[in-house]
């Protein structure tokens, strides 16, 4: 009897991980109804058998990922630069375009580098508080700011400027059109940076065939249209 029970326990331990649904965590700084995005992923046959969780804040994704790593994740491409727990396996595109620039904006027109060093810059926390300084340095080499203020959502960036919480904001091109509320001037623009990417948990070999099957309508909820799978 004891032998049989032991055998069943061992069997359960061996089989359980295989039966567990693969998990996908999605965090992309974007403006939209998270429920619409979550439903689109849930109803997409490409994600059948997978549990998808969409996050509106980076820190929520990171917090959940600390408790239990996702098998796959859709994240800003900057994630791979600062963290090594996921490996990029695919590139999201809008049309044929796989990248975008980040813009440094101000409500004032004439800004010198000296002004930057005296000013406060606001940006979306898309890589975690502790990595934000590095992100700014990587995007705008040579620009030093006196103070950095982070927000969770792109929609709060323009109010930062108008309300005077920040002298400058850093915003991606794709979010600018959605949040621009009044006239602002582009002080600088970064080199092109890859759009968000699809990642697989480091050290795993889960199948990635499903990437090419993701429906265009699903990607459109995040304002993308195609996936390019890395060879």
């Amino acid at each position: 009897m004891i032998q049989r029970l032991t055998f069943l326990c061992v069997l359960a331990l061996l089989v359980a991980p295989r039966l567990r649904a693969e998990s996908v965590g999605v965090y992309v700084p974007f403006i939209g109804d998270i429920r619409v995005i979550q439903n689109a992923f849930k109803n997409d046959p490409a994600f059948r058998g997978k549990t998808v969780t969409v996050f509106s804040k980076f820190k929520d994704f990171k917090g959940m990922s600390k408790i239990s790593k996702f098998d796959f994740a859709i994240l800003p491409s900057s994630y791979g630069r600062y963290y090594k727990d996921y490996v990029a396996i695919g590139q999201l595109k809008k049309g044929d375009v796989p990248d975008q620039k980040y813009l440094l904006l101000s409500l004032k027109n004439k800004i010198s580098i000296k002004n930057l060093a005296k000013g406060t810059v606001g940006l979306v926390d898309e890589v975690g508080r502790r990595k934000t300084k590095s992100l700014i340095k990587d995007l705008f080499a040579g620009s030093v700011f006196k103070q950095i203020k982070r927000v969770n959502k792109p929609v709060d960036l323009f109010p930062m400027l108008v309300l005077g919480n920040a002298d400058f904001i850093i915003i991606s091109q794709r979010n600018l059109a959605n949040v621009k509320e009044s006239k602002a001037y582009t002080i600088d623009s970064s080199e092109a940076v890859s759009l968000p990417q699809i990642y697989r948990r480091q050290g795993t070999k889960s199948s990635q065939d499903w990437l090419t099957k993701i429906k265009r309508e699903t990607l459109m909820t995040l304002d993308f249209s195609e996936v390019e799978v890395f060879k």
Binding site: K57, T120, D125, R129, R130, K133, K146, Q147, I148, K149, R150, V151, N152, K153, D156, P159, M160, L163, G164, N165
Partner: peptide, 30 residues
């Protein structure tokens, strides 16, 4: 949102060495 905004400023002071005078009194965002 407010808790996040306040804690960002706490982080700035402890980890980035910011002074309260540099941060100022902001309007709430969210």
């Amino acid at each position: 949102g407010l808790a996040s905004q306040v804690s960002d400023y706490v982080f700035s002071v402890i980890d980035e060495g910011a002074l309260p005078a540099d941060i100022g009194v902001d309007y709430l965002l969210e």
